[in-house]
C-alpha cells in the first residue's frame, strides 16, 4: 500500500533515532534507584505525565478501532471513545487521593487502604494479575503493529511484532521510566502532528468541510453528522440506554480506582508527578488531549467515509486512517507518517514494559521474595523483568493473533464486574479487604454464568454489553455486600493512618470523627456559624484538605468540558453549526475550573509536600515488613 522512496526512509529513520536516542539519553538518571527507574524520582512537572498519558493511550490499533466506530456510526461513534472521560473527574478526585498515598502501584495502595492478611492477599492478587495483563496488552498491540507493517511493507506478521518492540525494550531497559516519559513526550509531539496533518489532508481531499457534508447528505445519511442520532430508548444500534450506561461507567468511574483498565497505567503517571497539583493537571490534560485527538480523527474518517461509503468489511474500513496517510501524503511525508506510526507504537510498548516490570519488582520481588534488596539490585531486577516481559509478549502475541478481539471482551468483563467495588474502596470506609476480594472472585463466576452458562442453557438471552454491565454489577453486589457486612471493618488504626494521609472523598464519617478525637486532624468549623466567600481564593492547609464546593464545581464542569471538546473539534473542522461554540464553551469551562480549583490545589500541594519525605520513609519501611519509627 505504501510507496516508500529514499527520502521517506530517511525521514522515518531520523524520527526513530530522535525518539530512541532522546529516551536512552536519560539512562544515567534511571540507574540511581527503584524510585528513579519506576517513577522518575517522583519529580515530574505536569506536562510530562500528561504527554505520557496521551501517548500511552494512543496505540497502533487505536486508529483502527476509532476508524471502525466512526465509519460504522458516524459522529455519534465518538461516544464509544468517551470511556477515556473517567479522567475528567478522576483528575480531581482519585488522582489526588492516590498521589497522596504515595503507593508505587495500585497493588501497594491496597495494603494502605486495607490491612492484615486480606490486604496482603489483595496485593499479591493484583500484582500477579497486572504482570500478566501487561504481557497480554504488549502482545495485543504488538500484533496490531505486525498487521500494519504487513499492510505497509508486506513483511511477515512476526517481524512487525518483534522488531519495533525490541527497539523499544532497548531504551526502556536502560532508562526505565525516565526513558518512557521522555520518549512519550517526543513521540506524543510526532503523533499529534501526524494525526492533525492526515485529518486535514483527508478533509481537503474530500473537497473540504463543505464537500464532506455535501457528499454525506447526497447519499441521504445526514444522521452521520449528528452526535445524538439515537435509535430509540432501548432498541437499535445506538439506544439512549447504552449512552447513559457509558456515561455512568466513564464519568462516575472517576470516583474510583481501577474503573477503567487504563487506571493501572495512569496511576504510575499520577505518582511520578512532583506535587498533587501536577498529578491532577497531568491526568486532566492527558485525557483532554486524547479526546481532542479523537475529534481530529473523526473529522478525517468522516471525510474518508464520504469518499468511500460502501466498504462492507470492517477489517477493510478500519484501515481508513492508514489509507488516508499512505495514499494521500506526498513523498517525504509518507516517511514522516510512518515515523508517527512508530512513535504511536513505541510509546505504548515502553509504558507497559515498565509497568509490568514495576509490579513484578515492587510488589512481588521486593515485597515477597527479597524485602532487604538494595536499590542497585532492584534496578537490576527491573531490567531483567522488562526483558522477560518482552519475550513473554512475543509468545502471547503470536498465540492470540486470531482471537485478540475476543480477549479484549474479557478485559471488558473484568472491568465491568469490579467497577462498583473499585469505587466503594475509595468512597466508603466500611468496605473491607474481604469484600473487595469477594468482588473479584464473584466476577469470575458471575461472568461465566451471564456470558456463557445461562445463555447456553436458554435461561438467559445473550444480552448486549451495556445490559450485561448492569447484570454483572447487580449479581456481583449480591456476593460482595454481604461478605463486607458479615466480616469486620478494617482496624481503626489502619483506617486512621490512611485517612490522615490521603483525605479520601465520600462516606468516611466514623474515621473522620475518630481522627478529630485523637487530635490527628483539626475539627472543621461548624456549618451554621461559617461565613465564607462563594468561591474561596485563599486557603489554610486544614481548609484545603476538606472536600468543598470548589471541588464539586470542578467535578461537574470537567466532564461537560471533555464532551464539548471532543464533539466540538469534529464539528468545527467540518464547519458544522455549533462547533465553534462548543469549543469556545470548553475553553471557557477550562478557565473557570482552573480559576476555581488552582488556589486550593496549590494549598493542598504545599502542605502535603512538606510531609512527603516522612511519608516516603514510612512507605519504604512498610514494604520491607519493618516496624515504623513512630507515626
Amino acid at each position: 500500500m505504501a510507496n516508500f522512496t529514499i527520502l521517506d526512509v530517511l525521514w522515518a529513520v531520523a524520527f526513530l533515532l530522535l525518539m530512541v536516542g532522546g529516551a536512552f539519553f536519560f539512562y544515567r538518571l534511571a540507574r540511581r534507584s527503584e524510585s528513579d527507574f519506576f517513577l522518575a524520582g517522583r519529580g515530574l512537572p505536569w506536562w510530562l505525565p500528561a504527554s505520557s498519558v496521551f501517548s500511552t493511550h494512543t496505540a497502533t490499533d487505536t486508529p483502527m478501532w476509532v476508524t471502525g466506530v466512526i465509519y460504522a456510526n458516524g459522529l455519534r461513534g465518538l461516544w464509544y471513545t468517551f470511556f477515556t472521560a473517567w479522567t475528567a473527574i478522576g483528575a480531581f478526585v482519585s488522582a489526588r487521593i492516590f498521589r497522596r498515598s504515595l503507593a508505587y502501584t495500585q497493588a501497594e495502595w491496597q495494603t494502605q487502604r486495607f490491612g492484615g492478611l486480606g490486604a496482603e492477599m489483595l496485593r499479591g492478587w493484583m500484582a500477579g494479575w497486572q504482570v500478566f495483563m501487561n504481557m497480554f496488552i504488549l502482545g495485543w498491540v504488538g500484533i496490531a503493529m505486525g498487521k500494519v507493517c504487513a499492510l505497509a511493507f508486506g513483511w511477515p506478521i512476526w517481524v512487525g511484532l518483534v522488531l519495533p518492540s525490541a527497539i523499544t525494550a532497548f531504551y526502556t531497559l536502560a532508562a526505565g521510566y525516565w526513558g518512557v516519559v521522555m520518549g512519550d513526550f517526543l513521540q506524543g509531539i510526532v503523533a499529534i502532528f501526524a494525526i492533525v496533518l492526515v485529518s486535514l489532508v483527508g478533509v481537503s481531499a474530500a473537497g473540504g468541510p463543505i464537500g464532506v457534508t455535501e457528499r454525506i447528505v447526497a447519499i441521504g445519511e445526514q444522521w452521520r453528522l449528528d452526535a445524538f442520532a439515537f435509535t430509540g430508548w432501548v432498541d437499535g444500534d445506538f439506544p439512549v440506554v447504552w449512552w447513559l450506561t457509558m456515561l455512568v461507567i466513564s464519568v462516575i468511574g472517576g470516583f474510583g480506582m481501577g474503573t477503567s483498565i487504563d487506571w493501572y497505567v495512569e496511576a504510575q503517571r499520577i505518582q511520578s508527578a512532583k506535587t498533587v497539583r501536577d498529578a491532577t493537571y497531568g491526568l486532566w490534560a492527558g485525557g483532554a488531549v486524547t479526546l481532542i485527538r479523537n475529534g481530529f480523527w473523526a473529522a478525517g474518517i468522516l471525510a474518508f467515509f464520504s469518499m468511500l461509503p460502501n466498504i462492507a468489511d470492517a477489517a477493510d474500513y478500519e484501515l481508513g486512517w492508514f489509507r488516508l496517510g499512505f495514499e494521500l501524503l506526498p513523498t517525504g511525508l509518507i516517511g514522516v507518517f510512518f515515523g508517527a506510526i512508530l512513535a504511536i507504537h513505541l510509546s505504548t510498548i515502553s509504558s507497559h514494559l515498565n509497568l509490568g516490570a514495576l509490579y513484578f519488582t515492587r510488589d512481588i520481588y521486593q515485597r515477597y521474595l527479597k524485602p532487604e534488596a538494595s536499590e542497585r539490585r532492584l534496578v537490576w531486577v527491573g531490567r531483567v523483568s522488562t526483558f522477560v516481559l518482552l519475550i513473554g509478549s512475543f509468545f502471547y502475541g503470536l498465540m492470540m493473533e486470531e482471537i485478540t478481539r475476543w480477549l479484549i471482551f474479557a478485559l471488558w468483563l473484568m472491568m465491568a464486574g469490579i467497577w462498583l467495588p473499585n469505587i466503594l474502596q475509595v468512597v466508603w470506609w466500611r468496605f473491607n479487604a474481604w469484600g473487595y476480594l469477594a468482588g473479584w472472585m464473584a466476577n469470575l463466576g458471575v461472568s461465566w454464568l451471564v456470558v456463557w452458562v445461562l445463555p447456553a442453557f436458554g435461561v438467559l438471552p445473550k444480552l448486549p454489553d451495556h445490559l450485561q454491565f448492569w447484570l454483572l454489577l447487580a449479581l456481583g453486589a449480591v456476593v460482595f455486600v454481604p461478605v463486607t457486612l458479615f466480616t469486620k471493618p478494617e482496624k481503626m488504626d489502619q483506617l486512621l493512618r490512611y485517612y490522615v494521609m490521603t483525605r479520601p472523598i465520600g462516606w468516611w464519617g466514623p474515621v473522620h470523627r475518630e481522627a478529630v478525637r485523637r487530635g490527628l486532624i483539626e475539627k472543621t468549623a461548624a456549618k451554621s456559624t461559617e461565613s465564607r466567600p462563594v468561591i474561596r481564593r485563599t486557603w489554610t492547609p486544614q481548609q484545603a484538605d476538606e472536600w468543598t464546593r470548589e471541588d464539586w464545581i470542578a467535578v461537574i464542569l470537567s466532564p461537560l468540558v471533555f464532551a464539548a471538546l471532543m464533539i466540538g473539534v469534529t464539528k468545527l473542522l467540518l464547519l458544522q453549526p455549533g462547533g465553534l461554540w462548543l469549543v469556545l464553551g470548553a475553553v471557557l469551562g477550562t478557565g473557570v475550573i482552573y480559576w476555581v480549583i488552582d488556589p486550593k490545589l496549590r494549598a493542598v500541594s504545599g502542605e502535603y509536600e512538606a510531609q512527603q519525605a516522612r511519608y516516603v520513609e514510612q512507605l519504604e519501611q512498610r514494604v520491607r515488613w519493618q516496624k515504623e519509627g513512630g507515626r
Binding site: M121, R123, G124, W125, G128, Y368, L444, K627
Partner: peptide, 15 residues
C-alpha cells in the same frame, strides 16, 4: 485469574 495471592499468603513474616 492472580491466584500472586498464594505468594502473598506464604510470605505473610507477631509487622
Amino acid at each position: 485469574y492472580s491466584f500472586g495471592l498464594g505468594l502473598a499468603w506464604w510470605s505473610w513474616h507477631g509487622p
